[in-house]
């Protein structure tokens, strides 16, 4: 399979990438926990965490992309995004997950679970967004 698509994902998903939390602590991307995101958002002056529930996953074995539909925030706003199948999302209590965890592990070395309908992903919004 072509690997060119991997170039479209940012480098910080590569296993071993160093991530700085809001309190200054450094962690490897594969070691991040749900609490790291929650605590960083609490410290942040302009960002807050939203819960985004996966409602639909559309993809195929022949496509590099998947269409994900989320219900975002307390209003459960419907948001659809097209992503590379290897794009990881952080799921509450579950960790890194993607539509094709085998591909994510192969390309980035990042241990991943299968992203499924019902999973609640961490997403961000602006605190001052009215």
């Amino acid at each position: 399979p072509p690997v060119a698509a991997s170039n479209q994902l940012p480098p910080y998903f590569m296993k071993g990438s160093i991530i700085q939390l809001a309190n200054g602590e450094l962690k490897r991307v594969e070691d991040l926990k749900t609490e790291d995101f929650i605590q960083s958002a609490e410290i942040s002056s302009d960002l807050k965490i939203d819960s985004s529930t996966v409602e639909r996953v559309e993809g195929s074995h022949t496509s590099s992309f998947a269409l994900l539909q989320f219900a975002v925030g307390e209003h459960r706003t419907q948001v659809s995004v097209e992503v590379l199948v290897e794009h990881p999302f952080f799921v509450f209590g579950k960790g890194w997950s993607s539509c094709c965890p085998e591909r994510t592990s192969q390309l980035f070395g990042l241990p991943c679970s299968k992203l499924s309908v019902g999973d609640v992903c961490i997403s961000l919004t602006l605190k001052n967004l009215k």
Binding site: I19, L21, D36, F37, S52, K130
Partner: peptide, 25 residues
């Protein structure tokens, strides 16, 4: 002399998507 290579450090929020659309008032 071998200069030490700097290791990139990424902020935590780069890993998290912004999914919330603008909320109407």
């Amino acid at each position: 002399n071998v200069e030490p290579r700097s290791v990139p450090v990424f902020p935590w929020h780069s890993l998290v998507p912004f999914l919330a659309p603008s909320q109407p008032d």
